[in-house]
Design a binder for these strands. Structure first.
Lengths: 150, 150
DNA sequence: CCGAAGTAATTGCAGAGTCAGATAATCCGC
DNA sequence: GCGGATTATCTGACTCTGCAATTACTTCGG
């Protein structure tokens, strides 16, 4: 029981804070995107990831990593989006096991329509989190991160 | 399209980083706890939250907040844990709508057995994340947070 | 060139989450 | 102290996820 060292407790506490902030943002985005455009956060993430590959395709596997999903979940997610006409699948010539996905015009349009909602919600939620003592430090750290391509 | 300001992009990028790190840790903990003690991360979180109320009960609602779950999910989660004999429910005398939950001896024992696995996995995963350029800054920030009661 | 091993995507199944609605108990104005 | 509004929990219907098994294609040693 008391064998636990301080460092472990610090890490555990940090992890709880991270999880709390993540949950807060995730829930807020989920509601806003759902209400405004019938999009879940993962769906938005996928569209966004694809758009950043501008004009380019992405394989299912890359998409799975970008969305932090299993490949089976990715298959179904892509199917849902394809059914809604937001992206299209096509076999790739050089490796016919692979399947590429590409945004359709409708997909791009929906993404651009949803982006302001996403960004505004994110900003508002971060501001709100900054008011919570336990979260403010992490929020500050987050906004000072050097932008990466991640 | 190009109307998006830099600040929004910085926030979006930070959010992606946060989500990536969260996903990494969550998945690692999930696997480790599942493999070692048939516990999911939320289940561990609930046991841990209860233990920090030492000897004290917690209402379903508090538990729901602590685990970032809906109340219905909390009901089922508590039911699962109760079926495994890890905690017990009991009505509270002063407000008979409320239901208190309390760790059983078995629950405490399992938690103490799982804690080292949890802590070690957390440490290892953070170390691993620190090696990833996009994540290292956030990892550093996280380990320097002042411990809170959150 | 052939078969074994490895990789990409999909599908069946079971577990766990949300929302909406039901039930039960408390609180409050009259 | 009675009826309506509120609050706490639970249940039913449905969706999404991951794991394990399946199919299809590529790669590579002999």
């Amino acid at each position: 029981m008391g064998i636990r060292d301080d460092a472990a407790e610090v890490r555990a506490s940090g992890w709880r804070t991270l999880a709390a902030l993540h949950g807060l943002i995730d829930t807020a985005l989920e509601k806003a995107l759902q209400a405004g455009h019938q999009l879940s956060v993962v769906e938005y993430t996928v569209l966004e990831a694809l758009s950043r590959q501008d004009g380019w395709h992405m394989r299912m596997q890359q998409l799975a990593r970008a969305a932090a999903l299993s490949s089976s979940a990715t298959t179904r997610l892509v199917t849902r989006l394809e059914d809604r006409g937001l992206l299209s699948r096509y076999l790739c010539a050089d490796d016919r096991r692979g399947i590429y996905t590409e945004l359709t015009a409708a997909g791009r349009a929906l993404l651009e329509a949803a982006r302001p909602v996403h960004d505004a919600t994110l900003e508002a939620t971060l501001a709100q989190a900054a008011e919570v003592p336990e979260l403010s430090t992490l929020v500050d750290a987050l906004t000072e991160l050097t932008p990466t391509k991640a």
